Simulated scan of single mutants.
Amino acid sequence: MDNRPQSAGLIATTVVINIIWWMLMIAAIGLGAIHMDHCPVQPNVPVYLIVLGATSLLSLIFTYSSTGYQDGAVHILSLACMTVLHIFSFAWLIAGSSWVYAVYPPNYSGKERYCHKTTYQFAFVVTTLLWVAMTLLLVCSCCFALLTCCTTIFAGRHLLPNRKSFYGATSFHEPATGDV
């Protein structure tokens, strides 16, 4: 495990993002629970918000408990639970996207047929932000992997010895003692 000290800016950013995410997921649970029966056009939208909020909060709790214990059964159990939760959350995001985007664009004029405006807009924005964040993470990961591969390939010719060099040499061409 890497135990290097982290910068204050990184720690502050992590804390702020965690607080914002906690508030969003608590709001998702609250909006979904309060407006459970106020979305006749797609009754799964409030359920989607409740489950999304609950699994996200559970995932954060397991993340915190995993970092508290570096070794042992608690760490392994936390990692296993996080893995299952992340897989479930991804599948739930796909299902929720189909429910939220299927009724777009909403018509809020008829209260009998459509979702509560705030609940639907919250679900739409959170779902869209999750897809944007995942796409950004995927693109950055691919760029990092490509950069790492290119760096390794270009540095590869310097990493392998040729017949005129040996391991531990400081330069590739050292004149023999008789050659001056």
Rank of each mutant, 00 (worst) to 15 (best):
M1T: 04
M1V: 06
R4V: 05
Q6P: 00
A8I: 10
T14E: 12
V16S: 11
I17W: 07
I19G: 04
I19M: 08
L24M: 14
I26C: 07
A27K: 09
I29R: 01
C39R: 02
V41M: 07
Q42G: 09
V45Q: 03
P46I: 00
Y48D: 00
T55C: 05
T55L: 09
T55N: 00
S59N: 13
I61S: 10
F62A: 13
T63D: 14
Y64F: 15
Y64V: 14
Y64T: 09
G68W: 08
Q70K: 13
Q70H: 11
D71F: 12
V74Q: 10
S78R: 03
M82L: 14
L85C: 07
L85T: 05
A91G: 15
S97E: 01
S97R: 02
Y101T: 04
A102I: 02
S109N: 07
G110K: 08
K111W: 05
K111E: 09
Y114E: 07
Y114V: 02
H116L: 01
T118L: 13
T118K: 06
F122M: 03
V125K: 02
T128V: 06
L130I: 11
M134Q: 09
L136S: 11
L137D: 10
C140Q: 12
S141T: 10
C142I: 11
T148F: 08
C150T: 08
T152P: 04
G156E: 01
L160T: 15
R163H: 11
F166V: 11
G168D: 03
F172R: 15
T177I: 10
T177L: 13
T177C: 09
